[in-house]
Design a binder for these strands. Sequence first.
DNA 1: CTAAAAAGCTAATGTCATTAGCTTTGAGGG
DNA 2: CCCTCAAAGCTAATGACATTAGCTTTTTAG
Lengths: 187, 187
Amino acid sequence: MPRAGLTPEAVVDTAINILDAEGVGAVTLAAVASRVGVAAPSLYKHVRNLDALRRLIAIRIFHELADRLTEVVMGRSRDEALRELLLAYRRYAIEFPHRYAALPQAPPNDPELAAAGERVVEVIFAVLRGYRLEGEQLVHAARCVRAAAHGFASLETLGGFGRPESVDASFDTLIRILTDGLGKGTD
Amino acid sequence: MPRAGLTPEAVVDTAINILDAEGVGAVTLAAVASRVGVAAPSLYKHVRNLDALRRLIAIRIFHELADRLTEVVMGRSRDEALRELLLAYRRYAIEFPHRYAALPQAPPNDPELAAAGERVVEVIFAVLRGYRLEGEQLVHAARCVRAAAHGFASLETLGGFGRPESVDASFDTLIRILTDGLGKGTD
DNA sequence: CTAAAAAGCTAATGTCATTAGCTTTGAGGG
DNA sequence: CCCTCAAAGCTAATGACATTAGCTTTTTAG
């Protein structure tokens, strides 16, 4: 391993720094190379191409998000667990809006990326199992929770909530609606 | 108006055809120019630049979506109106996934674009006023509905729901949760 | 019939991604 | 210690695109 301490991980680190600072559009191989101090083509020694780098970034972010969700959910159950899960989800998106924006964007044909995303889903499942949900109902409920969390986070980080009313309060409303709706059995 | 019947509208039409057929990434000035039969620089006579074209596309799509929502909501109220609103929202996203994906992506610093997006929000507000919601509570409820609808549509069109369980049924669950949650007053 | 604006065009520049092929470095085996 | 070779870099070159500048051709208004 000659020269600079470049590794795929270091490349991803740098890319995420650029992502945080300048947004998804600024994550180019040229920008990463310049920041890291090598010529652009040198990056191909560590990463297949730009898409592959984006994939590595997404995997990293999914794991990071899943870790946070897992953390707040441990030792809690039902409404409390769901509430903390949703709050942590939104907190992540607000803290790292560009990372959040870099997330899905396309159906992952890739097992490792899919697995990373699946971790997030699994946390939701774990929480919902506490509501005695199982089988099909569990899947429906998880999709609803995921849709609500993602939709809110996405809209908020993209600046979609322009009015002056408290976004925190709106999110509390969302939490209330979800916990109420999941508490009762299916039709 | 010499030569070809090019107008900003025609350029947007062509761009949307490309969008539908090949996705957001394929919408380039080069592609539009080639499809329309002019040299790329000629497009600048009708559109300021690529960003401006994207903005026009987004405005068009917002209006189209708002028209559909408005249509299904007329003559209905409360749970029925909300249900049809949500169904129409999802239907649009499924019918035109690439148009849906081309939608927000950034906080609109532009009044016309903001107004077009606002039309969608206004339909939601109109429906929710039927629940006797007003003021702050109305805003919170509208944000929840929008987040849920957008999140679900976004995840579904991006292929986020991989499991075999019926997505229609999941969406029904979401509708139930929302109608139940809005029926009851605030805490 | 004519002049000026509108709509096109070609040429040129700059940014990226990506490939090909050459060079340097440093780690490990002798 | 020295040598070898693969890893890690580099430069040059190509190909998309967006965008600008400046020239030419149509139309349309008068």
